[in-house]
Simulated scan of single mutants.
Amino acid sequence: MKKRVLGKSGIEVSPLGLGCMGLTHASGDAMDTPAAARVIREAFEMGYTFFDTAECYVGENAAGETLYNEDAVGEALRPVRDQVVIATKFGVYHNPDKTLSVDSRPETIRRTIDGILSRLGIDCIDLYYQHRTDPNVEPEEVAGVMAELMQAGKIRAWGISGADEDCLRRADAVCPVAAVQNRYSMLARWHESLFPVLEELNVALVAFSPMANGFLTGAYSPKTKFEGAQDYRDGMPQYTPEGYEKDRAVLGLIGDLARERNATMAQISLAWMLCKKPWIIPIPGSRKPERLRENLGAAQVTLTAEEVARIDAALDGMDLAVFGGHARA
């Protein structure tokens, strides 16, 4: 597979990464660390080299034990450390009502990074994201701390999740930003306005929730029984009866393309963004090896620029129910 590059950092990764969040957080009961680590390691053996986690991806298993996503990522990837790129995030804390609190104060960043490195069991983080911008901390201040961490050898590159143009430009002027991680899918296209800036500054877009929290696979509907309070998909607009009816047109669009290309709906959804820009790197997640393999197969599906433009035009004409907030990581 042809590698993709994390912006001006020059770090090469597989064309798709693995979003590890759902193994322990927001997708039902957390998997025990050894089981989650086996999923991650199997993804590596399939060809994934880019793995995404975060300090706040914490959940409970059926026994009520607290489990940290970074522990599983570290257990899986330490034996192959020189062959993988590990991304993690700082500065977000989950509240019981599923909202977020943010804290990117320099003293917090400096205090927490050693704990993150310890959970991962590594000496240096390849890509370290500010998980959400903090209205109480200026972008230049965060970038300054990132420069310190790079000089100290604790991180190789850094990025921002949820950045707008002003934040990105101000931060990049202090310490070059390698990647922006934003929600992006056929149901979530509002960040396309940032694309010219990303190209200008040579910043990669790492697309989280690239299949709209599973909706674009065609596998879920309002009848799906998600796993209680720990599963954040329950109640998202695309899974309400009204929202699902609005968004079914997208399923029809990608279903037709999937049949034409002998591909799956998930693969068409991912190929659409892979073929749109060479610097977009989606990070779908799954607990199922067959889904991991299916997702990676999207890199072999080629859509022409004209086909991508036709998909965009069709989406533009749809009245879609989308999850447009930034309250969930």
Rank of each mutant, 00 (worst) to 15 (best):
Lys2Trp: 11
Val5Leu: 14
Val5Ala: 15
Leu6Gly: 02
Lys8Asn: 15
Lys8Pro: 11
Lys8Cys: 15
Gly10Asp: 06
Ile11Trp: 00
Glu12Val: 10
Val13Glu: 02
Ser14Arg: 03
Pro15Tyr: 07
Pro15Phe: 13
Gly17Tyr: 00
Leu23Glu: 06
Leu23Ser: 01
Thr24Asn: 10
Ala30His: 05
Ala35His: 11
Glu42Arg: 15
Glu42Tyr: 14
Tyr48Pro: 10
Phe51Cys: 04
Asp52Asn: 10
Glu55Ala: 04
Val58Ile: 14
Gly59Lys: 09
Asn61Trp: 05
Gly64Gln: 05
Glu65Asp: 14
Asn69Cys: 08
Glu70Met: 05
Asp71Tyr: 07
Gly74Arg: 03
Gly74Ile: 07
Glu75Leu: 15
Arg78Thr: 10
Lys89Thr: 02
Gly91Glu: 01
Val92Thr: 08
Leu100Ala: 12
Ser101Pro: 12
Val102Cys: 01
Ser104Thr: 03
Ile116Trp: 09
Ile122Lys: 04
Leu127Gln: 05
Tyr128Met: 00
Tyr129Thr: 01
Thr133His: 12
Pro135His: 08
Glu140Arg: 10
Val142Ser: 02
Val142Leu: 07
Val145Glu: 03
Gln151Arg: 14
Gln151Gly: 11
Ile155Lys: 02
Trp158Pro: 00
Glu165Arg: 11
Leu168Val: 08
Val174Asp: 01
Val177Glu: 00
Ala178Asn: 00
Ala179His: 06
Ser185Asn: 05
Leu187His: 02
Phe195Met: 15
Leu198Cys: 03
Leu198Phe: 13
Leu198Tyr: 07
Asn202Lys: 11
Val203Asp: 03
Ala204Gly: 06
Ala204Leu: 01
Asn213Arg: 14
Leu216Cys: 02
Gly218Ser: 10
Ser221Trp: 05
Lys223Gln: 12
Phe226Cys: 10
Phe226Val: 04
Ala229Cys: 09
Asp231Cys: 08
Tyr232Arg: 14
Met236His: 04
Tyr239His: 04
Tyr244Asn: 11
Leu253Ile: 08
Ala258His: 09
Arg259Gly: 09
Arg261His: 14
Met265Glu: 02
Met273Ser: 10
Leu274Trp: 05
Pro278Ala: 15
Ile280Phe: 10
Ile281Val: 14
Ile281Cys: 06
Pro282Gln: 01
Gln300Glu: 15
Thr304Tyr: 10
Ala309Gln: 12
Ile311Ala: 01
Asp312Ala: 10
Asp316Gln: 08
Leu320Glu: 09
Leu320Trp: 05
Ala321Gln: 05
Phe323Ile: 03
Phe323Trp: 09
Gly325Phe: 06
Ala327Glu: 15
Arg328His: 11
Ala329Lys: 03
